[in-house]
Design a protein around this nucleic acid. Structure first.
Lengths: 257, 257
DNA sequence: CGCCGTTTGTGAACGGATGCACAAAGTCCA
DNA sequence: TGGACTTTGTGCATCCGTTCACAAACGGCG
């Protein structure tokens, strides 16, 4: 524990309405310092595990179980959660529903963020159909595409609109999060328009490095990069394994295409 | 890769035929130590930037330019590349094509890895159509789905097969990399079958934590996690600035960035 | 009421990654 | 040929994240 976390007590579950850590600033830990980036990246994983537990009727969970479900070290889990405040009960564990609430609040998911998806191809459609998970904290303000043949087609429960509506959609719905699911050559242009329209957070699926002004947050998801990292480890593994593997089992060596 | 794997020897570029760093072990740096994980994760980004330069006819690039194109610090780029060997020329920069070759080799992309994609829905289709990028080092051995209505349908230039062929496909093509693009409830089962069949590297798009035995490498791509991280930063930003106003007249000057 | 087993929260040590700053090494031109 | 200029490769200090290990805190039980 630390300085000024006005931690209520009174036996039961404390502090539902307030912000729990005494700091009015969102995105700050109980000690007033910003949340570590690595912690932020893990909170959604915990949250999903917690939802799963909650749906199964589990009301209390210890850090051992929760960390196992999330695939992380238990000490790491405890330290991550301790950054949000002191919400565990020693000797018992964490109240699942209360922790769902606290983690959601820490992530800013007490509101539903409108998201605009640019690109109505297979990827855009896959994203829109993510349904159950996207809906926890997000709603699709619009799906945009430049192909007029797609306009009006419904994906999930949203109709595709033309990309020329981008600025209108962002302004009308106060969208600050955009997803780019267009081919690489079109991505930077879409990005520039999103930023100009007021979007400050971008999830980029196009395989290129977007240039954005300071203050705009970009995260990228790139299939080919992930595959290449896997290939690296796979090759290292296969090279180590060669000694104890029959010769015809080896992964093909050099090959000119 | 279009040109020959045996790399060009022109103008005193050293050490072509060997593995460049004197170590026979793939995945090790020039000093014999394993490559840092952070470096591995960036190599694909450099590689893409290098391909782009090469296609534009650029033959030589300095770390400043390349690092800008890759969106990283130039010292970081140089240190990353130095782990592969000393392939730069002081006062000049790096030979683009030669660096493409070296980075490809470091990543294990001198061979084309067969990949099996499980799930022929929108996501699986999107992955299969990644085309140009997936083909740099990878080929799709098969796309599998449990929906018999999809069987035989062509995606890219691969026909969808039934998921019951999984073990056959993996065995026949010596597949070690699998992509899971099925709904969450089916993912663990698919994962278990892939592992049992011999797959040791898995790229998971389903929103859950896969349980795998030691020695199996799993990377996950999760839209909702990325969105939640973006939401966190978006909320922090919006809290620092004033609440968004419908009118676009606001220029808050709280802090300079 | 006090003891016991359990679990949290965290201090501290460690290891990896980052970025600065500079010497070494090469090119280019007069 | 030599000197000025450019750019690499890296030592070093720093920061961030991970993990161990344990004292403090809690509920339950006799």
């Amino acid at each position: 524990m630390s300085s000024s976390a006005g931690s209520p007590d009174s036996g039961g579950i404390p502090d539902i309405a307030g912000n729990g850590n005494g700091s009015g600033q969102p995105g700050t830990a109980a000690n007033g310092r910003p949340l570590p980036e690595a912690t932020i990246a893990r909170l959604p994983v915990y949250l999903r595990a917690l939802y799963s537990l909650s749906e199964r009727g589990v009301s209390t969970v210890a850090s051992d179980e929760l960390s196992a479900a999330a695939g992380v070290n238990s000490a790491k889990l405890r330290k991550d959660l301790s950054h949000l405040g002191s919400y565990g009960i020693r000797g018992v564990g964490y109240d699942v529903d209360y922790l769902v609430y606290q983690v959601s609040r820490a992530l800013g998911l007490t509101q539903r963020w409108p998201v605009v998806i640019v690109g109505g191809g297979n990827l855009g459609r896959a994203l829109a159909n993510y349904g159950g998970f996207v809906n926890r904290g997000f709603k699709i303000a619009a799906i945009l595409d430049s192909d007029r043949g797609l306009i009006g087609r419904r994906i999930g429960d949203v109709a595709v609109r033309h990309v020329s509506d981008l600025e209108d959609v962002v302004a009308m719905n106060k969208v600050v999060i955009g997803v780019i699911a267009v081919p690489a050559p079109a991505a930077q242009g879409v990005c520039d328009r999103l930023v100009a329209a007021g979007v400050t957070s971008i999830l980029n699926f196009a395989p290129l490095v977007l240039k954005v002004p300071d203050g705009v947050d970009v995260r990228k998801v790139d299939l080919s990069i992930e595959l290449q990292i896997l290939a690296f480890h796979a090759r290292r593994r296969s090279a180590v394994r060669v000694e104890r593997v029959p010769e015809d089992e080896q992964v093909p060596e050099e090959e000119s295409v």
